[in-house]
Each structure stands twice: as structure tokens, then as C-alpha cells.
């Protein structure tokens, strides 16, 4: 997904780390990674540890980290947009206008990454980067622990009990699409983008599914 960008910028002190939030494990992610034919790091995060560490709620999200290892942009939607919500579900197509807008938004995001690598543009001062961090609440912390226990129980033959823990995790952290969709996918491949998903998306009303980055 990021290979062209990486090829273009890799000699300018730039690296891409793509992390698969994939509790079915490496073999399940392999076809996508093979197809991407990427030369940056492709890592497998079966336990969703990165989402715990960085307080992430959806995919794709990206964090920009500078040469000193400091966060210069907090987690943000990485190039995706909400145009899919207006898609014709029968034909799975978007209007030409929406397709063009979606591509333009993605292009603008990639251009921002390019500008950051070239000149440091879009790197936020510390107070602004900090202000953009979503807070971890005790409920979110508990949701992470329940999700972790649920994954272990599922992987060790205690599926029904694991599902209960994962459902409780989603109840405690309803803003996390990843917790809900990963649990749905473990239940059955495809369920994460099935009718129940669309019902949840509709329930958002005016709220975004992919909040646009504040570039």
C-alpha cells in the first residue's frame, strides 16, 4: 500500500513500518503482504499490542515519528476517507465524484508525508502533538485486558468464553472499530464487513468513521 512512497523516499532517511492487526496470525496476512511486494517492514501484531500501546481504534491509522524517536503527529487516519459510506451497496460502487474526492484526499495525505520527509513540514510542536492524543480511560484499559484474555481463551479452545470477554471489551470501548471488527472476523471471515458492520456505521450518524487528519 505504501511501496511507491517508500521507494521514492527511502534514500532520504525515511522508513515505513506496516503493522497487521491480525489475530488470525501471519499466514492469514501473508497473501496481502505478498501482493504488496513491499520492501519496508511488514510486521504481524496478533495480540493488537500496538493498538494498546498507541491507543488506536481503527485501521488504517498512522503515527509519524521523527529521527529522535519522538511522536510528531498523533494517531490519525492514514489516507482513507468516509466516501465508502455513500457507496451503492448492491453494486459496491461509488459515484465518479466520490471516487475522485477520495483519491484526491489520499493524494493530499501522501503529499503531506513527502513534505514532512523533505522539509519537516506538518511535524507538530510538542504541545499540539500532545493535544491530539486521545486519552486512555480506565474503561479502555480494561477493554484491552479483556480482549487479550479473550484472544487467549479463543486460541486455546475456549471459544464461547473468549467471545464473551471480547464482547465485553467492545462494550467498554465502543469507539474501537478494531476490537469489534477483529472479534467479528474471528467469529467468521467476512463478518467484520457484513450487515452488522454496516448497521454500526449507520449508527454513527454525523460522526466520522475515518476522522480526516488535521493537516
Amino acid at each position: 500500500m505504501w511501496q511507491a512512497l517508500y521507494e521514492e523516499l527511502k534514500d532520504k532517511g525515511f522508513m515505513v513500518v506496516a503493522v497487521a492487526e491480525e489475530s488470525r496470525g501471519a499466514e492469514h496476512a501473508r497473501p496481502w503482504i505478498d501482493q504488496a511486494a513491499s520492501s519496508y517492514w511488514q510486521l504481524i501484531d496478533a495480540d493488537h499490542r500496538l493498538e494498546d500501546l498507541y491507543n488506536l481504534v481503527n485501521v488504517p491509522q498512522a503515527i509519524w515519528i521523527d529521527e529522535q524517536g519522538r511522536i510528531v503527529r498523533p494517531p490519525e487516519t492514514a489516507g482513507s476517507t468516509d466516501h465508502f459510506r455513500r457507496m451503492d451497496l448492491a453494486t459496491r460502487t461509488m459515484t465518479p465524484e466520490d471516487q475522485a474526492d477520495r483519491l484526491a484526499a489520499r493524494q493530499a495525505y501522501l503529499d503531506a508525508v513527502r513534505a514532512w520527509v523533505a522539509t519537516g513540514a506538518h511535524a507538530l510542536p510538542a504541545d499540539q502533538a500532545r493535544a491530539g492524543l486521545p486519552k486512555v480511560t480506565p474503561e479502555i484499559a480494561e477493554a484491552r485486558a479483556r480482549f487479550r484474555l479473550g484472544l487467549w481463551l479463543r486460541a486455546n479452545g475456549r471459544v464461547a468464553e473468549g467471545d464473551l470477554q471480547m464482547a465485553e471489551a467492545s462494550r467498554l470501548h465502543p469507539d474501537s472499530w478494531s476490537l469489534w471488527r477483529q472479534a467479528a472476523d474471528l467469529d467468521e471471515v467476512g463478518k467484520a464487513s457484513g450487515p452488522e458492520f454496516w448497521k454500526r456505521v449507520q449508527a454513527l450518524g454525523d460522526r466520522p468513521y475515518y476522522p480526516p487528519p488535521k493537516l
Binding site: W2, G13, V17, L50, V59, A62, I63, E67
Partner: peptide, 13 residues
């Protein structure tokens, strides 16, 4: 360390 890192998540689901 020493490089700018674009750290991004994705998933098959």
C-alpha cells in the same frame, strides 16, 4: 532511530 518513521496499521478484515 535516526530515520523518520511512518508507522501505519492495516488488517485483512
Amino acid at each position: 532511530r535516526g530515520r523518520k518513521v511512518f508507522l501505519a496499521t492495516w488488517a485483512s478484515w
